[in-house]
Amino acid sequence: MKNIKNIIWANLVLVALLISSCSDSSDRIQESQIDASTPILSDLDIWLRSNFVSPYNIEISYLWGASNTDIARFLYPVREDNVQRWSETIKRAWIDPYNELGGKDFIAKITPRQIVYSGGFNFNPNSPTITLGIAEAGTRITFFNLDFLDYSDENSIRRPLQTLHHEYAHILNQKFPFTDDFGLITPADYTAQWFNLSAQNALDMGFITPYASSQEGEDFVEIIATMLTNSRVNFEAIIDNASPSGQAIIREKLGIVLAYFQENFGIDLYELQELSYQALLDSLD
């Protein structure tokens, strides 16, 4: 009995010591350090909120933030006066056509949540190439060289729209992967040295563009991007420029791409092409 008392007494002292020794003199939780104040909004900011954030939950990030881009590269922010026109162009040539054919919430449901604008070119080190755009984890698309767009030149606007359709197709692929048979058509011809291929060589090998030969995922989305930024006649003419074997390969790949859109989204890609290409033309001066 005496031992039990001693044990109880000892344990009480032990608990008291533990509690006192664990006392912490660190600060109490203080006011949050997160800046939740309303930022200063320009007219442009208000317009972007009305046209992208509210309807589609897409942030157009045009104000420079080092975390948005690779600090090792010499990149810079877009000029303010180039923001609204490009935003209107992508709404017209990307959001509206997809929503018209895929349903009014198509883009709101499957979309990059942030679109980043950058003014200058993104030159790739040790390579004679530039990066036109980047899609990251299906949540963000970054556009480069927006300060150099010429709205009197169809090709100048086609390139970044091609980038947009290219990157968005990657996001669609992340939600609905394409079938393995696509990669089995030209598995041996994919190359990291894609930039050494001329456009004609790429076509003859069964790739719609040289970059399509870099890997099967790029091959798939390059077909979509090329389609959506050209008229059907022009697109057919591009394919017809390939050698007979190249044409056959591209058409086989195209069949898989068309089926992918029909089966996963109920969208006829040729209809989408008509709408998006017309929007490209409408965005020009």
Binding site: A66, P77, V78
Partner: peptide, 28 residues
């Protein structure tokens, strides 16, 4: 941070569309 493009800043970061040419500038 100079958050939108002023050519006085951006020309130092990357000058010219004809190829990579920098004056090693920054906007942060």
């Amino acid at each position: 941070v100079f958050t939108t493009g002023s050519r006085h800043i951006t020309d130092l970061v990357q000058d010219g569309a004809a190829g990579f040419n920098t004056f090693f500038g920054s906007n942060s």
